[in-house]
Design a binder for these strands. Structure first.
Length: 152
DNA sequence: AACGTACACTTAT
DNA sequence: ATAAGTGTACGTT
């Protein structure tokens, strides 16, 4: 089993992806790119298409880490929708603060869509830069509206 | 191995 | 406006 790495563009950022088939072991954001390939669906998502990434498996839910229940709950949030830290916490029986902690340590953002987890009164945080979360949420919201308009 | 501190939050004073 | 509750990680003894 060989892990493939590569990066693609997302706005001003580069998304580095380490993967093997449907299994994604790591995703991180950087100002610079690296050589190598990225799965088609992830490339399309980064290009702004409304792609459902739930067909991928994150190492974060395959492993049995203390946060895995939280990651599983977060992965169920569909494209264009959001949940609050508190809602996720209630689902898995922990506290909102812990959910934030799990998001901060998410090894595979996008696959585990931590950008769809927002604060009860605000957007919440995101690393390395909140602008990525803002971009993704704005884009998903826009695409969701577009889908609604064209599907009725 | 224990201890203190730092968090991508929320809810109740 | 402030404080308490919460679970994990990480650095310092």
């Amino acid at each position: 089993m060989e892990t493939i790495s590569g990066s693609c563009r997302l706005g001003l950022w580069h998304v580095h992806v380490y993967w093997n088939g449907d299994l994604v072991s790591r995703i991180r954001f950087s100002r610079t790119g690296i050589d190598g390939s990225v799965p088609l669906l992830i490339r399309q998502y980064c290009a702004g298409k409304p792609v459902d990434l739930r067909s991928f498996v994150s190492i974060a839910i395959q492993d049995n880490t203390p946060y895995s229940r939280i990651y599983r709950a977060v992965q169920k949030i569909p494209y264009g929708k959001t949940a609050t830290y508190g809602e996720i916490a209630r689902q898995v029986g922990t506290s909102p603060r812990v959910v934030g902690q799990a998001m901060a340590r998410n090894p595979t953002p996008l696959i585990i869509p931590c950008h769809r987890v927002v604060a009860a009164n605000g957007i919440g945080g995101f690393s390395p830069d909140i602008e990525i979360k803002e971009l993704l949420l704005a884009r998903e919201k826009r695409n969701r509206r577009k889908n609604r308009d064209t599907s009725a």
